[in-house]
Structure formats: C-alpha cells, structure tokens
C-alpha cells in the first residue's frame, strides 16, 4: 500500500506506575492503519490491546512514541485541538457506554451537541443514523429498554454522528451472543464499504478477525508479534503467539500420544473440492490419524484446517509430504507440546 496511513503508531510505549512497581503495557509498538481498511488487533486479556486502542485517541497517554492521525502527531496537540480531532475518531465499547438517562435519539445527538451542531439539525441527523443502523422505531426508547445488540447499534449510530474517519471498536461484540455478534459485524462491514470509514477492531475472538478484518496484528505480552493480511497470517503463522491465537487446538494436540509427526494442513477454497486426504492415504498406502479439523471463513473465502498425525515410517512421511507439495497444500509441522 502506498497511500498515507490514517493512523500511525511509532515506537509507542506505555508504562503504568514508576520505579519498582512499573508495569509495561505496550512495548515499542509500530502500526500503520490505512484509510478504508478493517484492521484487527487480537490478543488475550492482559496483552495490552485495550491500552493500545486507547492510545489511538489518547484516552490513554503513551509514555513514549508518537500517534499520528491523518498526518498530525496528536500527542503534541493542545487539549482543545485534541478534542476536535477526537470528533473524527468514533469509538464503541464492550459495555456500550450509553447515557442511561437519555433516549436512543438523544444519545446519538450527544456528540453533535458537543460539536455545537444546532439542535434541530442534530435531531434530524440522529434520526437518519438510527434508521441506518436499523433502529428507526426505537428513537424514544431508553437504553434500559433495549437489548444488547440494539444498544450496540445505538452506540454505532452515536459513533458515526460526527462523520468520523475512523471507528475504534474495543471488544465491541464480546458481550453479545453469537447471532447478535454476526449482525453487528455485518453492520460494521456494511458501513465500512458504504461510507469508507476505517475500522479498528480490538478483540480476543479469532472469529471476529476472520469474518471482517483485512489485516490483523497479533499482540502478546505488550508486543506486536505478527502483522499482515488475515488470510496470510492464517495460512502461515510465523510466531508461537500467532499459532496459539489462530489455532486454539493446543488442548487437542496435548492429548495425542505417539511418535508420528503432527502436520497442520491448510486448504484454501479450491482444494476443498477435492478429496485430498483420501487420495493421499490411497496413494501413499498409509493411514493418517485425523486429530483436529475445522473450517473457517476468511474474507468470504472458505479455508479448511486440519491436524493429522503421520505414520512413524520416515519413507511414508516423505511420500506424504511430496504428495502435499504436488497438490500445493500448505502444511506445517506442529509440535506436540504447544505452549
């Protein structure tokens, strides 16, 4: 990508506390997020991802490094200028964070009120936004009367009110059931395509990343371990942290005993139409033990993912690997003791 990033984090560091009690939350983070993309940041709890997203709009001040939004280093701005910039960065949260004493409509009006938009204009814009998120009939409802998914829709409408260039999502679907999660993700994707708004998603769920992200960064122990297009990271995870995130199948592998090599296979859409494993077994004349199998949908393409245990015979293993190479199936050796 040759365009200029909309958000650029450079050598970002965040340390909480000082001296002996200091805790490093983020360590030398470098990320560039480009206009129009859906960028995912995935990590386990405590990895630093919430702190990371809060550094993007300076809800959290980094200890060192710079945060460049749309060409401006916002860490050096005055309070007033920063508040202006924040209007171009919408944010939604795991717990929705709606004003409980305001109706859905007034919640969406809130950022417009702060931006000094005349009340009448604000109300009509808020109405339009509620319709956009599919809640045209709920404008008079208070948050307490709405379901989780509806609350998040109001929050999305609110985040969109000031026409932001970026929407930051902090575990936005983590408090929702699977069906509602799907519908919220679909809405975000639709808004991304229709309005061209850049979306940054923080999550601990690989499914969220697979479903709507273009690129992903994997954060583990305050570091960015791996970053790249989702399908690439998925097919060829390089680091242990990435593997753990993508294939939470460690428990399965741990229970397998024996000495045969474990092989992780990734089939892309084309291979899914052919009986690869069956042919492999027939051709090489040796059975394999299927330890784990799953399919994933990434960027609207289906990927199969399987872990097989190979025979102990070296010659057979060579034959199998040759066969897989010929069929152009991506594989990787898995260790028994996945940490």
């Amino acid at each position: 990508m040759t365009q200029t990033p909309i958000i650029e984090l450079k050598n970002l560091n965040k340390t909480f506390g000082t001296g002996e009690e200091a805790v490093v939350a983020l360590d030398d983070i470098n990320i560039s997020i480009y206009p129009g993309e859906i960028f995912g940041i995935i990590g386990l709890s405590g990895a630093g991802k919430s702190t990371l997203v809060r550094c993007m709009n300076l809800l959290e001040r980094p200890t060192a490094g710079s945060v460049i939004f749309d060409g401006t280093d916002i860490t050096s701005l005055s309070d007033k200028a920063l508040r202006n910039i924040r209007r171009s960065i919408g944010m939604i949260f795991q717990s929705f964070n709606l004003l409980m004493q305001r109706t859905a409509l007034d919640n969406v009006c809130f950022p417009l009120e702060i931006a000094g938009v005349p009340k009448k204009e604000a109300r009509s814009r808020a109405r339009e936004l509620l319709r956009t998120v599919g809640l045209g009939d709920k404008e008079k409802a208070y948050p307490a009367q709405l379901s989780g998914g509806q609350k998040q829709r109001v929050a999305i409408a609110r985040a969109l009110a000031t026409n932001p260039k970026v929407i930051l999502c902090d575990e936005a679907t983590s408090a929702l059931d699977p069906t509602t999660t799907q519908s919220i993700l679909a809405l975000l994707k639709e808004l991304n395509q229709r309005l061209g708004v850049t979306i940054v998603i923080i999550t601990h769920e690989m499914k969220v990343i697979e479903q709507i992200c273009n690129r992903v960064a994997i954060i583990d122990k305050s570091h960015i371990e791996e970053m790249g297009p989702v399908d690439e990271v998925f097919r060829h995870p390089r680091t242990q942290a990435a593997k753990k995130m993508i294939f939470p199948s460690g428990d399965v592998v741990e229970e397998v005993t024996g000495y045969g090599k474990l092989l992780r296979l990734v089939f892309d859409g084309n291979a899914a139409n052919r009986p690869i494993i069956a042919n492999m077994v027939l051709k090489c004349g040796s059975p394999v033990n299927i330890v784990f199998a799953d399919t994933k949908r990434i960027d609207d393409k289906i990927y199969g993912h399987m872990i097989v245990q190979l025979p102990e015979n070296e010659e057979k293993v060579r034959q199998i690997l040759t066969y897989l190479d010929m069929e152009e199936i991506a594989y990787e050796e898995e260790e028994y003791d996945v940490q």
Binding site: R86, R87, G90, M100, I114, A115, T162
Partner: peptide
C-alpha cells in the same frame, strides 16, 4: 456514574465542563 460512559464522552471530544454538566450530573440525577 459508570466510568465507561465518561470515557465514551471524552472519546467524543467532550471537555471537562461538558462531562460534568452533560454526563455526570444528568446520569447521577
């Protein structure tokens, strides 16, 4: 008042005074 709601209004560019007058007081009413 929920810390998250205050954080959300800060993320929308609310000033300290706006947070007090438009968020804390009405929410704590």
């Amino acid at each position: 008042v929920d810390r998250g709601v205050i954080e959300a209004s800060l993320s929308m560019g609310a000033s300290t005074l706006e947070v007090v007058l438009k968020v804390i007081i009405p929410e704590a009413k």
